[in-house]
Amino acid sequence: MKTSKSETILSTLIAKGNLYGSGAEGIKAQNIVVSNQNDWDTLITKMNSVNTVTSGFSEVEIDFSVFDVVAVFGEVKGSGGFSLDLNMTKNSENIVVAIKQNAPDRLSNSVMTQPFYIVKVRKSDLPIIFTKTNE
């Protein structure tokens, strides 16, 4: 049995935070890979449908001939303080996106939030798989 060595993938953080539309954005908890401008425009429009979230993004102009966007959305929560972290590695077979869901460490405000995490990565022929982690 061969073991495949993992290495960390360089990614550029586009945005990490929360949507505050109580789910009205219509974005379900999901992990997506955006590989073209049309899908990116659709996602941005949805994210901005309640509040202009993308004004805080580090970039919105993506060169999809070179990069893909990995976007992770958590569940809509009944209070604030929730967040996501991503760790991306690759081996000879896959790119693995390990998702850590962070809960608030103390009582938080009672506003409905939906955590998200969006990064840009270099395009690859390897399939991207998502896993959940507690680390």
Rank of each mutant, 00 (worst) to 15 (best):
N38Q: 15
N18D: 13
S22T: 12
V70M: 07
P104K: 01
N94E: 00
D39W: 10
V60W: 10
A103S: 05
S55G: 09
G17N: 06
N18Q: 15
F67S: 13
S22G: 12
Y117I: 03
S79T: 12
D105V: 06
G23V: 02
E75T: 06
E25H: 12
V69L: 10
L10V: 12
L86S: 00
R106H: 03
S55D: 14
S22N: 14
A71G: 05
R122M: 09
K2L: 09
I128H: 08
W40Y: 14
N134M: 07
S49W: 04
T12V: 11
G23R: 04
I128Q: 09
G78K: 04
S79R: 05
V111T: 11
T8Y: 06
Q114M: 04
D63W: 14
Q37N: 14
V34L: 15
E75P: 05
L19P: 01
F64G: 10
K132N: 11
E93S: 04
K90V: 02
S55A: 12
M112H: 06
N38V: 11
I62F: 14
I129E: 12
V97T: 00
N109K: 05
K77I: 10
I95F: 02
L43M: 15
G23L: 05
T45K: 15
Y20C: 13
K16Q: 11
V70W: 00
V121H: 01
V34S: 05
L86H: 03
L126R: 10
N36F: 04
N38F: 12
T113F: 00
S11H: 11
S6G: 02
G81F: 01
V69D: 03
N48W: 11
G17V: 03
V34R: 03
F64P: 09
